[in-house]
């Protein structure tokens, strides 16, 4: 038994790999930004006294956390189609990934909000800040800071999980790999390259979050404890 690897045959398709990797990164970028927004709103919603809003947010979070991502993607894909709405595979993928990561973000952000001491909020109330101002100026950033590692890991996981978007033929990295291996009959080599590319994408994202952390948490930068 001998292992024969022929990388050059596969590597000559590098423009396709590159395009796939870039698309994966784009998917991850948009879903991260939109998911962070959606998740934060859902976390705020779960904490409100309005039981209708709180209940709706809870149903959203629990539904998503207890169904497979692939099923969610198909639901969005076929759901939009059955409504007669035509969107590109990319748009559908971003929507589905946003809905998915939003639920996980909501849970993480809720933990962050709960970690803010009551005294912080009372001090802000005592200074006559409004409800919204308290969330915006006092709660949000310290809450994000408390859960930043968990949050960023979740977004990296999302990027990796976006590989299932190949199922609705979004031309991301895994979809590209599927074409290439069926063209070249070099499946093992193809997926080794893809795995390496995913590792690189993860590192790119982690570097990005590290830089964002420097911007978001100047105190940590000043005190020499960056996240």
């Amino acid at each position: 038994m001998s292992l024969q690897l022929d990388f050059p045959a596969v590597l000559e398709r590098w423009p396709s790999f590159l395009a796939g990797a870039v698309l994966t990164l784009e998917l991850a970028f948009f879903a991260t930004v939109l998911g962070a927004l959606l998740g934060t709103l859902a976390a705020v919603g779960r904490g409100t006294h309005n039981s209708l809003i709180a209940g709706a947010c809870k149903v959203y979070v629990e539904t998503i956390r207890n169904t497979p991502l692939l099923v969610q993607i198909f639901l969005v894909y076929f759901g939009l189609a059955s409504l007669g709405l035509k969107y590109s595979a990319f748009t559908v993928a971003v929507a589905a990934l946003t809905i998915n990561v939003g639920a996980y973000t909501a849970e993480i952000m809720r933990a962050g909000f709960e970690a803010i001491p009551r005294g912080q909020i009372e001090a802000a109330e005592g200074l006559a800040l409004s409800r919204f101002q308290i969330y915006w100026h006092i709660i949000l950033l310290p809450a994000v800071e408390k859960v930043y590692p968990a949050l960023t890991s979740q977004f990296v996981l999302l990027m990796l999980a976006s590989s299932v978007c190949s199922q609705i033929s979004a031309e991301e990295l895994t979809a590209v790999a599927n074409y290439i291996q069926s063209d070249t009959y070099r499946a093992f080599e193809t997926y080794i390259i893809v795995a390496v590319l995913y590792v690189i994408l993860s590192l790119v994202m982690r570097a990005g979050f590290w830089g964002l952390g420097l911007l978001l948490f100047p105190r940590r930068r000043r005190l020499g404890t960056p996240l």
Binding site: P117, G119, Q120, E122, A128, P142, R219
Partner: peptide, 17 residues
């Protein structure tokens, strides 16, 4: 009301960030 009243607590409660 709270613009007219200042309150200081035992635990300072400065905003850490």
């Amino acid at each position: 009301l709270r613009q007219d009243v200042g309150i200081v607590f035992q635990s300072y409660n400065l905003f850490p960030h």
